[in-house]
Simulated assay, not measured.
Amino acid sequence: MVKLANAVTTFLLGVSGTAARSLSSTARSAAFVGGSRACSGRTGVAMHAADQKLPVMAGEDVMSQKAHGTSEKPVMKDLRWGCDYDTADRICNFNRHYAEFAGYWTTTKFLQEVDREGPTTYYDSVTGEPLFTAPVGRSVEDFLKESVSHGWPSFRDEEVNWDYVRCLPDGECVSTSGTHLGHNIPDGKGNRYCINLVSVAGQAKKE
């Protein structure tokens, strides 16, 4: 993972060595599906977020059991950026607390393929609904730098499509169709949605 962090540092213009070291440190303590819980300590910060206008909240019913785990169907076969199908389906549909390992998103084709000139829309890996658009109100480099620092793609309030995204009282971030996305982990700047890339690697829904 140290080599990975160094490679990411070389690739990202403007990403500081401090951020890269943070990724390396985070990766060593990464949470795997079936392993440690991701983003520990989220309950306290989620209570703080619940007092704010955002995030838009939902009850447990949105994550009720359906035809395929918490969703009506499996994830798409043609996920973007080379995301692993089995990992995506497990995290999206049969999981409430765990995450892809920290830095996983940097091992995909994401950094090579992401638009460096403007915002990218991130679609639900199950339904194809647009869930996030980033960056908004900041540069692509700032978005990538923050995501490297935290270990997962990290979105802010203005980058969330609240038509399709909800948060639960414990901080879990989900889609309105039941896809597990990640967790809201607020920091000094406000709400920060720590999202699994495999959950938002879908193709746009066809009309």
Rank of each mutant, 00 (worst) to 15 (best):
M1V: 13
L4M: 11
N6C: 10
A7M: 12
F11H: 13
L13Y: 11
L13D: 14
S16H: 14
G17E: 15
T18K: 13
A19Q: 12
R21P: 06
S25A: 13
A30L: 05
F32Q: 08
G41L: 02
R42C: 07
G44F: 08
A46N: 06
H48A: 15
H48P: 09
K53S: 09
E60L: 15
D61S: 15
Q65D: 11
H68V: 04
G69M: 02
S71D: 13
W81R: 01
D86R: 14
T87P: 01
D89V: 02
R90S: 12
I91M: 01
F101P: 05
A102R: 00
A102T: 13
Y104I: 04
T107Q: 13
T108E: 03
K109C: 10
E113D: 12
V114D: 10
G118Y: 05
P119E: 02
Y122R: 06
S125K: 00
G128S: 03
F132W: 07
P135K: 03
V136T: 10
G137L: 11
G137V: 01
E141I: 12
E146W: 00
S147C: 04
H150K: 15
R156F: 12
E158V: 10
E158W: 05
V160D: 06
V160E: 02
N161Q: 12
V165N: 02
R166D: 10
C167G: 04
T176M: 05
T176S: 05
G178R: 00
T179F: 00
T179I: 02
H180T: 09
D187S: 08
L197T: 04
G202A: 05
G202C: 03
A204D: 09
K205M: 12
K206T: 14
K206Y: 07
E207V: 14
